[in-house]
Amino acid sequence: MTSPQRQQTMHGSAQTALYIEDLTVEFDGFRAVDELTLLVDYGGIHGIIGPNGAGKTTVMDVITGVTKPRAGTVLLDRTHDVIGMHLSDRAAHGIGRKFQKPSVFEHLTVRENIALGVREYPDSLLREVLRGGGPAKRARVDEVLDTIALAAVADAEAGTLAHGQKQWLEIGMVLARDPRVLMLDEPVAGMSNTEREATAELLQRLRSPERAILLVEHDMQFVGQVSDRVSVMHEGKLLADGTMDQVTSDPEVVRVYLGR
């Protein structure tokens, strides 16, 4: 890949992975996301924080395709209209997501879980089922197992894993396809301190100039620790945007977080 160049265009710079403009999501008249505009760049970790109900998860739902927005634009690489894409095409375009609730297939082994994330024939499910499972796939699975440090339990059933391991496994499933946009919804919720440290290290390992990592997390300390850039959402709107230090000194943010 060529290194990204700073070149300002209509929909962000060449570094822009996700371009979100005027995004609005409504549930029965309730505006979960309200004309949100946000740019997510390649090469970094972009944290989104905000109080409960700020619309953070909903933004991820829209990008993943689980929720349909009322209005707005989401572009991948400034060209691909994500909202118009079929749900399974989004994964093919490199959008991956770890859900808030750890969603691994408990009746499959760790290895099988990750193998589900690898696609040798992204265009044809039939070919994947008939011919998939070759050495290339196994190699990729082993690679991911190393990255998420679960090689030791590769043949255990996912249901028997500890909570933190399940979170990593789900990241691994998403990672298996080498996503360009990796969305992580509360990856350290319910983790011990050691596990949180391990997750922070894992995120550093996942950094890549060709990957944008979008992180939604309640743990402010964790977000501050790993993120290059932080956006604060409140009642569906973007409140502040910048480094952790910048946003935490923003009076509006302080007002929202400390009560009015």
Partner: peptide, 23 residues
């Protein structure tokens, strides 16, 4: 085989499977 794994995926968490890119 692979089909069985996918079916278990459909049964246990279909949304996860769809977001992984399976139609």
């Amino acid at each position: 085989g692979p089909v069985g794994k996918l079916l278990v995926g459909v049964r246990d968490d279909e949304d996860r499977l769809r977001v992984l890119g399976y139609e």
